[in-house]
């Protein structure tokens, strides 16, 4: 098991109250795989420094979790398949 930090940029057209449920839905794969989600930090709407998919802003969220590497890889794959996700980044804060 390893600690990960996953940052997600969601489509800004998503509704404010739909953000947390949609993230939870993505994170079920972690719970089913025996991992645990420590913290979900939703930054909210934020201007992007440059346009991504013609969009000037995005909804940022940072998730701290502990899971097996394969689980996180699967989570990242599923996030990238989703249309509402503009971009993701997986970081292991311990190793730098």
């Amino acid at each position: 098991m390893r600690r990960y930090e996953v940052m997600v940029i969601l489509d800004p057209s998503i509704e404010e109250r739909a953000i947390a449920p949609s993230l939870d839905q993505f994170l079920t794969v972690v719970k089913n795989g025996g991992g645990s989600v420590e913290k979900v930090d939703i930054w909210g709407r934020r201007r992007l420094s440059y346009e991504i998919q013609k969009k000037g802003e995005g909804v940022y969220a940072v998730v701290d979790l502990t899971a097996e590497p394969a689980i996180v890889k699967e989570l990242d794959r599923q996030l990238n398949l989703s249309e509402t996700v503009l971009r993701t980044k997986v970081i292991r804060p311990e190793v730098h």
């Binding site: 940029i9 992007l48 420094s49 440059y50 995005g58 940022y60 971009r87 980044k89 970081i91």
Partner: peptide, 13 residues
């Protein structure tokens, strides 16, 4: 560079 990838910082301005 990580921050640039996530559009937190600009590549160029």
């Amino acid at each position: 560079k990580n921050a640039r990838e996530m559009a937190l910082l600009p590549y160029t301005s």
